[in-house]
Amino acid sequence: MLIASTGGLAVDIAGSFFARGPEALLLDGVPGAAIGFIEAHGLAFILGVMLWRAESARSWHVVGAVVHLLLGTANFLFWQFFTLTGTLAAGYVTTSLHGFFVFGHLCALNAIRSEVPAH
């Protein structure tokens, strides 16, 4: 998530402030429209740092699963963005990785649940 969000921020900044890159087409004449892109990728970066540094606890795996579920679902719902900007490869990779990490967090949750003694 850290790598993808950093790349996303770079593309967002290039498209909104310098009219360069795949987002330039969408942001032509309305660079302020990138606020949502920049906020989303910035928040994904912050959450990525938090998840990277977090202890392996149920609550953090729930957060990780939900964050990746949200981001992967958003990719599906706005798939036309990847089509219009010619970034289908990035869409396939990032959406697949979100699915992979949802699965990984769910597996970790299951493993942690198995370790907790029943009362």
Rank of each mutant, 00 (worst) to 15 (best):
52 W>L: 15
51 L>G: 09
90 A>Q: 13
16 S>R: 00
6 T>N: 02
14 A>Q: 08
116 V>R: 06
40 A>E: 05
6 T>G: 09
19 A>T: 04
51 L>W: 10
76 F>G: 06
116 V>K: 06
60 W>G: 08
19 A>Y: 01
36 G>Y: 08
48 G>T: 07
98 H>F: 03
17 F>R: 05
25 L>G: 00
7 G>Y: 07
118 A>W: 05
105 H>Y: 06
37 F>P: 01
90 A>N: 11
96 S>L: 11
48 G>W: 04
5 S>D: 00
106 L>W: 00
32 G>Q: 02
25 L>E: 01
46 I>Q: 06
62 V>I: 15
87 T>S: 13
60 W>V: 09
98 H>S: 11
28 D>F: 04
55 E>A: 14
10 A>L: 07
45 F>H: 05
67 V>M: 14
16 S>F: 04
84 L>Q: 15
104 G>Y: 05
50 M>T: 02
78 F>L: 15
75 N>V: 08
99 G>C: 09
108 A>V: 03
86 G>A: 10
13 I>M: 08
26 L>D: 04
23 E>D: 01
48 G>Q: 10
111 A>I: 03
51 L>R: 10
1 M>I: 00
22 P>K: 01
110 N>F: 08
31 P>M: 08
43 L>C: 11
87 T>E: 13
32 G>K: 00
104 G>R: 13
40 A>W: 05
21 G>A: 00
93 V>G: 07
93 V>D: 06
116 V>P: 01
72 G>N: 12
21 G>W: 01
20 R>W: 05
47 L>F: 15
116 V>S: 06
40 A>Q: 09
103 F>Q: 01
37 F>A: 11
14 A>T: 00
94 T>V: 14
49 V>A: 14
118 A>N: 05
2 L>M: 06
107 C>I: 07
85 T>M: 13
84 L>C: 07
98 H>K: 09
48 G>N: 12
114 S>D: 14
111 A>D: 14
5 S>L: 03
88 L>G: 07
22 P>D: 01
107 C>T: 04
23 E>R: 01
50 M>K: 07
68 H>F: 11
71 L>R: 06
88 L>K: 11
99 G>R: 08
39 E>R: 00
3 I>T: 06
89 A>G: 05
96 S>M: 07
5 S>H: 00
18 F>V: 03
91 G>C: 07
64 G>T: 10
82 F>N: 13
47 L>I: 12
35 I>F: 13
33 A>C: 03
20 R>L: 07
107 C>S: 06
19 A>C: 02
21 G>S: 02
75 N>M: 13
15 G>K: 03
77 L>P: 10
23 E>W: 03
60 W>N: 14
92 Y>G: 05
83 T>G: 10
34 A>W: 00
75 N>F: 14
33 A>Y: 05
59 S>F: 14
12 D>N: 10
31 P>A: 04
21 G>D: 04
76 F>L: 15
